[in-house]
Design a protein around this nucleic acid. Structure first.
Lengths: 216, 216
DNA sequence: AATATTTAAAGAAAATTTTCTTTATAAGAA
DNA sequence: TTCTTATAAAGAAAATTTTCTTTAAATATT
């Protein structure tokens, strides 16, 4: 348990907002914006201006009073901080609809991840090519991980094989798994798992809708 | 600004965890579990036991010392609380890969939402049927909303038409939008928008991976 | 040049959320 | 029965995150 180092941790909510800023800034840049202030960003994204300042300060960028931030510089700092400028190679397991959606997604624009290949066990999917990405048989997974030195796996299988495939992934030295299945994965402590639960989002939506109905 | 009523608001983190409990409990139930304690749930999902107790208490359920909760009762309370037992009808706009994934998803198991129909503008998608759900032309959206009295829209279009389609949805009296595109939607205050950003999840994953690399 | 205004930055305060502590209760064991 | 133990419940404390306040700097205006 080493936690002596006083590297103040970045709040997770901040980490989640940073890509939202980045996305917005890229759009603004295309519209010709050169300098942009925190209050402007906050106004657009309906956030508190001081929160935007604080969030951005984590990337190390400095703004100028009365001018704001240089948008190119800010984008650079954000990409650098988030690691979106590095190529973070990933393999995708489960080339169904959701998997295909992700492959198509990143074909268009950098999601920070680069899906080098997809894997499946269903014969009729293997050999397909979805938006630049080849679908290979899961049998080749281990070899390909070694060959391309990939450490991130994206899990988009049906739920009932999720645990099994996750285990196969880490047996092949995958270190971090982005789990888009509803399954709760039981894996060793040292494996990083990022769960993206559709359920949770639906739950929040329904609760807010319910609240709004009550308060007429 | 009415906020005199002391209806203590349920923490959003709690709302997001509740469907995770529900999902786990349904699995446990199939394995024959009758009674289950908060520490057991916490152990399985790697959470703090008291947090589980506190979360569950929001649903109004009462547990029994030394026994825990009756699993059927607990599932019932959760479904009731989350509104997952009611049929929450929704229309989906954008029948691409991601849209199809969601349609396929809910075909299998109740996500709390029932997608009654999907809409698109691409001629070759219209008439298709993905997992029980018909794909109709967006021109019919308004009429169908009125006919089936739907108030929830799921947005899975390409980003560049997201704003436009969202506006079309609310013009047709949709009240809540689950936005799965990266677009930040500018809509009237009274519209409920739930953003599910893939970017944010990637960002958290990459940061955690980076941290783990540093601390060898 | 002087002044007013905008804004980033830093720190304090407030709000929220999680974790810890205590208490009460009921089940099982002795 | 009596004692021990597991657990929910309730409240307190701690940690985290957001919002508020103050300060300082730099630009634009007069």
């Amino acid at each position: 348990m080493q936690k002596d180092k006083k590297i103040k941790p970045v709040p997770e909510p901040t980490i989640k907002r940073l890509p939202v800023y980045l996305h917005y800034l890229n759009k603004a840049r295309l519209e010709g914006v050169i300098n942009i202030s925190a209050p402007t960003i906050a106004g657009e994204l309906k956030l508190d201006p001081t929160q935007v300042v604080k969030d951005l300060s984590f990337t190390g960028i400095k703004g100028r009073t009365k001018i704001g931030y240089n948008i190119y510089e800010l984008i650079h700092y954000l990409e650098e901080y988030l690691g979106f400028n590095k190529t973070n190679n990933a393999f995708l397991v489960g080339a169904g609809n959701l998997g295909s959606a992700l492959m198509a997604y990143q074909a268009g624009q950098s999601l920070g991840l680069k899906i080098l290949a997809a894997f499946d066990i269903s014969a009729d999917r293997i050999g397909e090519k979805t938006g630049q990405v080849n679908v290979l048989h899961m049998n080749n997974f281990g070899e390909m991980v070694k060959r391309l030195n990939v450490s991130i796996g994206i899990l988009t299988t049906p739920e009932h094989v999720a645990q099994e495939m996750a285990e196969k992934m880490i047996a092949c030295r995958i270190k971090a798994i982005w789990n888009l299945t509803p399954a709760y994965l039981k894996l060793p402590e040292n494996i990083i798992v990022q769960n993206t639960s559709m359920y949770s989002n639906v739950a929040v939506l329904l609760k807010r809708l319910e609240e709004s109905d009550v308060v007429i």
